[in-house]
Design a protein around this nucleic acid. Structure first.
Lengths: 150, 150
DNA sequence: AAGCGTGGTCAATGTTTCTTGACTTGCTGG
DNA sequence: CCAGCAAGTCAAGAAACATTGACCACGCTT
């Protein structure tokens, strides 16, 4: 799958809006014009043509996303939720530590070992998923001296 | 997080290559020039400046990705691996059905119920993750009549 | 039959982005 | 001390992109 054209297709704010709208379902030409408040037909036409590799028309003549269109929407989500992943990790980890220490100190019953075991397994899997699979970094790599301003 | 500038940064093939190279580790200017076979310094300079919001320089003066740079690389991965997710789902599902039917027909022992239970739990979680969280679609939505060629 | 809505196309123009190539600065080895 | 390389900067032109506005064809309806 060639990602270049997907990113080209979503590198303009109006195209991102069109994608978000089409992700909700098939839409007609005038439909899109109204929803996105675009006055010019030519402009909408231009952007739809630009995205011809990820937006097609169905049997009723409505615009729909194809596979790669959904991939593009997902890519937008990944970028905009990136900060969330790290926070979720810390929340989950904090939960794990606090709850287990609390349970261990108060209840003192063998059944805790099961909870502890299952939870630990989950944390190991979750850490693997977060850091290896999804490549989340804990901190800004590289002491950034100063950004390259124009 | 403003995704517009991230997508802008990765909407050109050369910039995607630069990102992939920097994802491997910090690189110097001439390093990048050699690896990506760019003759013109001005060209590389232009693209690095273009990505100034996701590429910075570290204490040694080498170019590195910041948080958002890694998000961008991840977005590229999501797009290029989208087809793979669906295939993995079918493989996993097929495995589940074949193995359980096989075990049930051949071994006939109560311990199978545990394997069956754990495996079913995993499949439920995996389906949730695949279809709800990651929004993978099973089929191409929309009978695509014909794509909008220029 | 005239007017309106849908679903477009196309040419022209202004704006931005890419690319080239010439130039600078600072360091290093011979 | 000067050649050569690393690490850039910058102006100018070419190419691509974005936007406008005029136009077209079809179907419906009043």
């Amino acid at each position: 799958m060639n990602s270049d054209e997907v990113f080209d297709a979503i590198s303009h704010p109006m195209r991102v809006e069109i994608l978000r709208e089409l992700a909700k379902g098939p839409r007609g030409f005038a439909d899109l014009k109204r929803k996105l408040k675009i006055d010019s037909s030519g402009l909408l036409d231009f952007h739809l043509k630009k995205m011809s590799s990820i937006v097609t028309t169905n049997a009723e003549g409505l615009y729909v996303l194809n596979d790669r269109g959904f991939a593009a929407v997902q890519a937008i989500d990944v970028v905009s939720r990136y900060g969330w992943q790290r926070r979720a990790y810390f929340i989950n980890m904090g939960m794990y530590i606090v709850m287990n220490v609390y349970l261990f100190l108060t209840i003192q019953h063998w059944a805790i070992l099961i909870v502890f075991g299952v939870w630990t397994a989950w944390i190991v899997f979750y850490s693997y998923w977060t850091f290896i699979k999804r490549r989340v970094r804990l901190r800004d790599n590289g002491q950034s001296k100063t950004s390259l301003e124009r």
